[in-house]
Amino acid sequence: MSNHHNNGSRAGETEQMAQPQCLKVFIQRDYSEGTLVKFQTRFPQELEGRVIRKTSLETTINRLNSYFAEAEKATCSTYCEGCLACLTAYLIYICKETHYEKVSTTLTNNRENDTDWQMLGKTSEEDPQARGSSGTFLERAS
C-alpha cells in the first residue's frame, strides 16, 4: 500500500514539477546544541555519486552554521542592544536594524560571491533562513 502511494506521489510530482530535472535535497536542522539555527552536516544519500562533493557540501554548511552562530551569539553587545531597545520601549527597532539582521545581510551578500555556493546550484531565491525546520539545496542533474 505504501508503495502505491509513494508511486502516486512521485508521478504527480514529476508531472507538475516546473523543473523535473532538479533534485532537491532538504538539509535538516541539527538540534544537538539547542534551538540555535544549525544544519546537519551529514551527507544526504540522494547526493551520492553526483557532482556535489562531500567536502564542499560540508564546508558550505559549516560556513552557514558559523554565520548563524555569529548571529545568535549572546555577547555583551547584543545584550546592550537589547537593553537599549527595552529602555526606548522598543521604538528603536523602527529605525535601527539588529545585530542578527546585519549578519544575515552579510550572509546574503557573501553568498552571491561564494563559488562553493554556486557549485551547489543553490538559487538565490531559496534562502535557508526562510525555512524554519530545514534548509534547501538544489542540484541540477547533469
Binding site: 549572546a74 547584543t78 546592550c80 531597545a85 539588529t98 542578527y100 526562510a130 525555512r131
Partner: peptide, 9 residues
C-alpha cells in the same frame, strides 16, 4: 529579554 532577536521567517 535582551538576547538576539531572530528575524521573521
Amino acid at each position: 529579554l535582551c538576547g538576539p532577536v531572530t528575524p521573521s521567517l
